[in-house]
């Protein structure tokens, strides 16, 4: 079991091409922890904006009558991947991990695999 700081550090060190990571509470839109980012890439803004993404998807699924859970969401930009992974169980309800990857350096399959492992070990 790993704590928040350790998990965020591991996101950036263990996953190739990762440049920023955050743990976000999508009931409030606020980040519980952030690592990486910069003046140009404000993770607080990303946390609030991606909260709307997650909420929109959950609402869509509800309207469609899908009784499923979101495992992760992938957003592909020209030069970046953004990965959102929802936390399961152990009080992790209502939280997601947000990861920014450099598309030229990252291995998407490996990144998803690593993020799943980090998420399963994270204790909030």
């Amino acid at each position: 079991m790993a704590n928040l700081e350790t998990s965020l550090k591991e996101c950036l060190s263990a996953i190739d091409g990762a440049s920023a990571a955050a743990l976000v509470d999508y009931t409030s839109g606020m980040a519980l922890g952030t690592l990486g980012g910069s003046k140009e890439f404000n993770l607080e803004v990303a946390a609030a904006g991606n909260t709307d993404v997650v909420r929109a998807k959950l609402r869509t699924m509800e309207l469609l009558g899908l009784k499923e859970e979101i495992e992760d969401i992938l957003i592909t930009l020209n030069s970046q991947y953004h990965l959102i992974r929802l936390l399961k169980g152990r009080g992790g309800n209502g939280l997601f991990l947000y990861l920014v990857l450099d598309a030229s350096r990252a291995n998407l399959a490996m990144a998803r695999h690593q993020l799943r492992r980090i998420e399963s070990e994270l204790e909030v």
């Binding site: 839109g29 609030a48 909420r55």
Partner: peptide
């Protein structure tokens, strides 16, 4: 409301 957004 998205409080993060509200703050921003």
């Amino acid at each position: 409301v998205n409080v993060g957004r509200l703050h921003l």
